[in-house]
Amino acid sequence: MLPLLVLFLALAALGALLFWPRSGLLDRWRQARQLADRVQMEDALKHIHAREARGPLGTPESLAGKLGVTVKQALDLVSGMEESGLVQSTGRGLRLSQTGRKLALRVIRAHRLLERYLVDELRMPLEEIHAHADRREHAITEEELDALEARLGYPQEDPHGDPIPTSAGALEPQETTALTEWPVGRPARIVHLEDEPPETLAKIVAAGLAPGMQIEVRRVSSQNLVIWDGEEERALPPVAASNVSVVPLPHPVEAPTRLTSLRPGESGRVIKLRCAGFSRRRLLDLGITPGAVIECAFPGPLEEPIAYRVRGALIALRREQANEIEIEAITAAAE
């Protein structure tokens, strides 16, 4: 009797483990399969969209290379997407339909908002965010995305400088020039850092370049482009420089004075905050707004953080935050 009961219970448990709705193994496997299919399709849409914007149109072959599948699998994928009315094969390559473009833009929006979130709120290094966003972009729901966008304060650009599509699906392209094509000595503003391949992006980030920066190319050699940002010179190999896009700057490059340059007892007036997201909101709340007078009070026992006096209150900041605050020095005579 007892062995029978045990056997029955074990079978029931096994059955539940396998067939329980939603959390059972079978359903989980099915969900995982569906997710994997969707991920592949969304990645394909992204690829076709990118090729429509830049370079030759996508083909089943380029798709196979991008997704890491065989050409046969890529062809299956394409015909599946054609059946659902997402893409059209033309003589020169693949084009997105209206629905397909909408879907692709949705994924791109998710990707870029996630990147913004990873940088602004989680403070991840720039070269790591692309991979993270690639994984998460497929799982996030529309509502979560809207909430995220609101929380981030409706950003217009991702951390690489690319525009984020609106929830309605609009995406305005921008006229930019690759840094390698840019004339020596002409002031420019960085608007975009290409995020693939990550090793190249890492090189760009290591050289200290970021979207929004004012630069000018000083010298060009076969090994390096020497770039000046108003403060110091930075060297970048041409391979990496071709992944940096710039637009013209109407005025000469200005060297920013940062809050960190103040020594205890010295004061400055805030000109602008370079940070975004929560840290920007927090600094503003504490009264560190453009125009506010800020005085360096004293450093901590380990040299960091540093206490600053602003609007009568004493606020401690780390070096990173202080570096993101641009000031103009107030001379003793001006006071």
């Binding site: 989680l122 403070r123 991840m124 290094p125 929560f278 840290s279 953080p305 004493l314 401690a316 780390r318």
Partner: peptide, 14 residues
């Protein structure tokens, strides 16, 4: 919990 140190602001009240 990988990530960079985030923004740090601390008021030192009187």
């Amino acid at each position: 919990l990988k990530g960079e140190a985030s923004s740090f602001t601390l008021e030192l009240p009187p």
